[in-house]
């Protein structure tokens, strides 16, 4: 509490013997150098551990034969997300909305596959087949059946998943948690 309890310590500034001065200077530089190296040696791996990003692997999730889908109908499809960690439990059970659009002029099956996460803040949207709208319970974002933004705060339409049809079966690329700058169209972060 007493600010001036001790007289000022002048030992550092008092002139030192020449030979000792050089040695002390060297020691200081060496200490700073080794200290920096030591800090980097511990710090960099640690930062890498915490902030490091595993390469996002591409998995394809089978969502059943195309013949199971009715044209112009949207359904919730659940699956065990292969992007999970082994101890994820039920939280690895993810879902997407699948809408079968029928065949295009080249007789290729066309699908719309949406993330359930609202493009506003990620809450789970609910599909209402009667009004053909997706409603978000959090801030009231609304989307049309084709995923386009209908009303409310979302800055864009629903996130589209990447899909393909292999041997008559619909497959979806395992979706990561989608955000505004990291949509499901991307394979890697950033």
């Amino acid at each position: 509490m007493q600010q001036n309890a001790n007289p000022p310590d002048n030992t550092d500034t008092s002139p030192a013997p020449r030979s000792g001065g050089a040695r002390r200077g060297f020691l200081k530089v060496l200490t700073a150098l080794l200290g920096t190296v030591a800090t980097v040696l511990v710090g960099v791996p640690f930062m890498g551990y915490v902030f490091g990003i595993r390469k996002r692997r591409v998995y394809w999730v089978n969502l059943g034969p195309v013949s199971d889908y009715t044209p112009q109908q949207t359904q919730l499809k659940t699956f065990d997300n292969p992007l999970k960690q082994p101890w994820d439990g039920m939280t690895a059970e993810n879902a997407v909305y699948v809408r079968y659009e029928g065949k295009d002029e080249d007789q290729r099956d066309q699908f719309l596959v949406f993330s359930v996460n609202c493009a506003h803040l990620g809450c789970p949207v609910s599909w209402f087949p009667q009004s053909e709208l997706f409603l978000c319970p959090c801030h009231g974002g609304v989307y049309y059946a084709d995923g386009a933004h209908a009303s409310g705060p979302p800055p864009r339409g629903l996130y589209h998943c990447v899909w393909r049809v292999r041997r008559g079966e619909l497959e979806v690329r395992a979706p990561h948690y989608p955000t505004l700058h990291d949509t499901l169209k991307q394979t890697s972060v950033g």
């Binding site: 902030f51 992007l83 939280t91 948690y177």
Partner: peptide, 17 residues
């Protein structure tokens, strides 16, 4: 953004990490 999200969630989806 994507890096922060990945750091926050500790992975690609919300789960154990």
């Amino acid at each position: 953004g994507p890096v922060i999200v990945h750091t926050l969630l500790g992975g690609d989806i919300i789960g154990g990490e």
